[in-house]
Write a protein that binds this DNA or RNA. Structure first.
Lengths: 108, 108
DNA sequence: TTCATACTTCAAATATTATTGAAATATAGA
DNA sequence: TCTATATTTCAATAATATTTGAAGTATGAA
């Protein structure tokens, strides 16, 4: 994870619909969720949802896999974890902002 | 920290110049940095920098304090920490994405 | 094949953000 | 007060992102 990757991932998460989608996917089981299910759950039109899912996939925060007629979207937890690690490592540069938890690195 | 606060903070960080500014402020000492110093260090025109600093302040990720003729901008580490905590808490919902570090909460 | 379902891409409108010079404001020192 | 420095706000433009219906593509079932 470098600065531009981080900016890209942050941009992907910096939207109400996309953060909701990501959180919903995290809450879904290992099979992930289909666009139809997400569309119904979050009340987002299919076209709009498709646009946002593409953004998330493009930022590597979500993966897709086709299973028959359905697509299954899943959160890319390792990438999210890398983002959290990057932010943690660069928000204090070795100094602790909260002494009691100093040097603990962010993970999800 | 709630969803909309998180989106706001993420949006503030989701820009190359602003992430650079934040990181630079984190690296600066407790006196923070003035716009002139940031402008020189990052080679960003004063007007553009002022726009981005306002965004960061508005998102509570940075604080300002006037000292004589200068302004001192400092990172609001507690708020950054709250953002990391929110993301950590909501990216796995109790499940570990990386077993060896499970349940460790993100902090900076 | 044909039909229905699941999704995506296209396209065009709308909305939001970013950039920057010029002008304005604030402070401090002479 | 007058002047210089520090920084912001204004205003106009340029660039990007978002939304959504309509049309297209892919798959599976009949």
């Amino acid at each position: 994870m470098n600065e531009s990757t981080a900016v890209f991932a942050l941009s992907a998460l910096a939207h109400e619909a996309r953060l909701k989608v990501f959180r919903t996917l995290v809450g879904s089981g290992p099979t992930g969720m289909t666009p139809s299910a997400l569309s119904a759950a979050l009340d987002i039109p299919a076209t709009t949802l498709s646009f946002h899912l593409k953004e998330l996939v493009h930022a590597d925060l979500v993966t897709v896999e086709r299973q028959g007629r359905n697509l299954h979207y899943r959160p890319a937890l390792a990438h999210m974890n890398a983002l959290l690690g990057y932010l943690t490592d660069h928000c204090c540069q070795g100094q602790a902002c909260i002494p009691s938890v100093r040097k603990r690195r962010a993970t999800c």
